[in-house]
């Protein structure tokens, strides 16, 4: 909608260039960039209809009681009061999400970069093989069900069987239902899965670094690969660092699917319950859509703040 209005204005802009007021100037600039708007149009139209519009329509739901059958009933801020003041499980969910966000988040971001950088130092064939192996978990879809078999609580689980065979334990451990083990296991699997979009963009980004810069660096006295990383590679990877950071924020704040698949929903003692699991719990199991929307709204705000923070940190490497 906004776009078509802009286009109309753009067309008008070509005719009205009599006075150079700021408004007129903008119109004329728009007219001059007609081609640019045309090229964005397909994306923007589809994006507006299928992403932006549903999101905007969903925002008010957080302030209602909505059971997906009756028409939503406006309840003001009561969902949010309930969330922060009465819902003890939500506090557990926040705690777990923060553990994931601040432990696995930075760790897997770091891993993505370091591994991509190390892979980039191998020959062409090894590069392809390693990239393939490391990225494999991300495109294997739901293959993390194998982890469930490995950590299965009975004597047939691979880990239990191996440990019992070696005589380290005498009875099978309930890996996925014992609150002591659940969180570490989910973290391991999460790390295993973490070499995704960010990792691949690093691999691609490293290919695009101007090779002659390395030569120039060698001439100017760069001695080893670490200096090279610090003075040449990192500064020319700004856009990829930012891309991977945003992807990392999204994936670490919305963790829940893996935990749910491995440890169930709700998990024992809510040991791996995250904000996302909480939203799933209310949204898809209890049909309290209003409450689930309020949860997602809080999550969105948290991610927005985090994004601002990361942007500030990475400002050194990015121009905009």
């Amino acid at each position: 909608m906004a776009l078509s209005a802009k286009k109309a204005k753009a067309e008008a802009g070509t005719v009205l260039h009599i006075e150079d007021s700021k408004f007129r100037y903008t119109l004329r600039e728009m007219g001059r960039n007609k081609g640019a708007y045309m090229m964005m149009a397909p994306f923007m139209i589809l994006f507006l209809i299928f992403t932006l519009l549903p999101v905007l329509l969903s925002l008010p739901i957080g302030f209602t009681n909505f059971n997906m059958v009756q028409f939503p009933k406006w309840v003001g801020l009561s969902n949010f009061y309930r969330l922060f003041l009465e819902d003890d499980v939500f506090l557990i969910a926040i705690k777990n999400t923060l553990i994931f966000a601040f432990l696995t988040g930075p760790l897997s971001y770091f891993l993505c970069f370091i591994l991509a950088w190390l892979i980039n130092q191998m020959g062409a064939v090894l590069k392809t093989i390693f990239t393939f192996i490391f990225y494999a978990p991300s495109f294997a879809g739901n293959i993390y069900f194998i982890w469930q078999l490995m950590f299965s609580g009975d004597a047939n689980g691979y880990i239990n069987a191996t440990l019992m065979d070696l005589g380290i334990i005498s009875a099978p451990i309930q890996w996925l239902t014992d609150a002591n083990y659940m969180l570490p296991i989910v973290i391991i699997v999460q790390l295993w899965l973490s070499l995704g979009a960010g990792f691949l963009s690093f691999i691609a980004g490293l290919q695009s670094v101007d090779k002659s810069m390395y030569e120039a660096g060698a001439v100017e006295g760069i001695k080893n690969r670490w200096q090279e990383l610090l003075h040449i590679t990192l500064p020319s990877m700004g856009p990829q660092l930012l891309f991977a950071a945003v992807m990392q924020i999204t994936s670490s704040f919305t963790v829940g699917t893996v935990a749910q698949a491995l440890t169930g929903l709700p998990s024992t003692d809510y040991a791996t319950h995250t904000i996302m699991s909480h939203a799933m719990d209310y949204g898809s199991l209890r049909y309290e859509m209003g409450y689930a929307s309020a949860i997602c709204f809080v999550l969105f705000i948290a991610m927005l703040l985090m994004n601002q923070l990361i942007n500030r940190i990475l400002r050194k490497y990015t121009s905009d």
């Binding site: 994006f47 299928f50 549903p54 999101v55 739901i61 992807m247 939203a279 997602c296 969105f300 994004n307």
Partner: peptide
């Protein structure tokens, strides 16, 4: 808008997406 939209979670918007 594009960067912000990366942070949306789809669980709740599914209902509205269906309606649209």
């Amino acid at each position: 808008i594009i960067v912000t939209s990366l942070l949306f979670t789809s669980t709740v918007t599914a209902v509205m997406q269906y309606m649209v």
